[in-house]
Amino acid sequence: MTGRNLKGISKYKKIYAAVISIFVFLCIWQLAVMFTDVGIVMVGPIEVIKLFFVSMVKPIGHDTIQMHIVWSLSRVMTGFVIGSALGVVLGILMGWFRPMNALFRPIYEIIRPIPPIAWIPLSIVWFGIGEPSKYFIIFLAAFSAITMNAFAGVRAVDPELIGAARMLGANNRQVFTTIVLPSCVPHIFAGLQIAIGSSWATVVAAEMVRASQGVGWVIIRGQDSNSTVQIMVGIVAVGIVGFALAVLMRWIEAKLCAWNVRGR
């Protein structure tokens, strides 16, 4: 029953409901800050939103808030693109060629559970305090999620489809390029979805440790200068951009995987 009711809700009604729910949340927040003790440790949404817009023209540190976002995004994209590319290649190779799996899987399985931020001190030692050390951390965050998913994708290829392709005359190379690769695309997208989320979370952590710009830096700088409102501006920016990245990934997936049920 519930399922049918939910399905019946149109796109516009959903947006409408989202706007109302956020508005009500902000109202309660504002009222709580104004009339209860919450106000001692929290600033209200009006103040946060005000500073957010002010910081779009008046810099925090050297940059406006949108430039901080661009800084963070550029770090994420560099690490994410390199990590994804290598992850897809390694995952597929491990999935398709058993010797590759036997060789790389053990190392990968030990590195995988280490949270990317645990590498921050080492990466500073190896790559210095500049940009490369941040790329490295984000690379690790993206790489492990995608390798696992690409690997699982290859392993999940329907053997009947491989049989059908061979029956139709495909050789080994053609089976790989025309059956194995396309059928693991949905898995790879699931991995990219997880990877973009953890990359974004990781960049914030990396910038909180060592940076002079970026949204993570905005948050940590807010703490140093005792400005709760600046911390909140940073957090809001992290939330909005993270949400936008997830929506963008889903949109790309729906475009590229129209054939797949997941994408519909």
Binding site: A164, R166, M167, N260
Partner: peptide
């Protein structure tokens, strides 16, 4: 397996990422 024999499967075994044309001309 070889292309001198054709198989029609119970679970169709169509390639879902290919269109009807893509499947037939595979």
């Amino acid at each position: 397996p070889g292309p001198d024999r054709g198989v029609v499967y119970q679970r169709t075994a169509l390639f879902p990422w290919l269109t009807v044309m893509g499947n037939v001309e595979y």
